[in-house]
Design a protein around this nucleic acid. Sequence first.
DNA 1: AATAGGCACAACCGCCTCACA
DNA 2: ATGTGAGGCGGTTGTGCCTAT
Length: 236
Amino acid sequence: MGRQPCCDKIGLKRGPWTIEEDHKLMNFILNNGIQCWRLVPKLAGLMRCGKSCRLRWINYLRPDLKRGALTEAEEDMIIKLHSQLGNRWSKIAAHFPGRTDNEIKNHWNTKIKKKLKFLGLDPLTHKPIEQPDPKNDDIKQQLSSENEEINEKGKLPETLPTFDYPQEQQNIQNSTSSSSLNEMTESSEMGSSEIFQNLGTFSRDLYNPGVEDPFQNWIGSPIRWDLFDNLEDNFL
DNA sequence: AATAGGCACAACCGCCTCACA
DNA sequence: ATGTGAGGCGGTTGTGCCTAT
């Protein structure tokens, strides 16, 4: 009756994967393919649970993964898809061959979310955060102090806090009625992705000015990428 | 040079769905 | 029809790196 449990969690290793573990998992999958994740760690000689192996393969070892930072076009697409799909990261990731749901989720939580908030947009609804609502005072205050901080560092133009919204968005910003605000927002075709397109490169790297491409860090990682060179051939 | 704080991302946890016995 | 496990998914956390002080 039923099936055996995925793992008993006794004596299983946790935490970051070592290069040796990566090699074991990779070699096993290359030679045997993936039939049952539960059996993978046992057969590959790993003290990990099947779930952990699956995650490691999908998010890090898969040969078809696209390495490096997300491009501007990808970021815009993520915003657009998120406005349609919500937090369905796997669905969103399906539109980006070589990208993982985890990667996109992390990018959203660390970069895009902040940008939307900075623009006065709710990351959940992609609609403007209601201005007169006292509940948002702490958020506004936080955003305001962030703006001041950025300006103090001299990395942004003085006009930054008053973003030049398209006319429809300006009307929304100027409205003091929350109901009319909602009406206008709902009737507007303008979503956060469009706003970003109008933004051009202005907000790009707003929170990362001058930061070098994270891909550089990847290159410097201890993983021997040359081991991946023949992976595709092995799959054929 | 030391250290505190922030950030990015890998990995884990818990829940859900679906397939199987 | 029902119980159970595998796989998948999204939320959250832990940790290492970087930067500022």
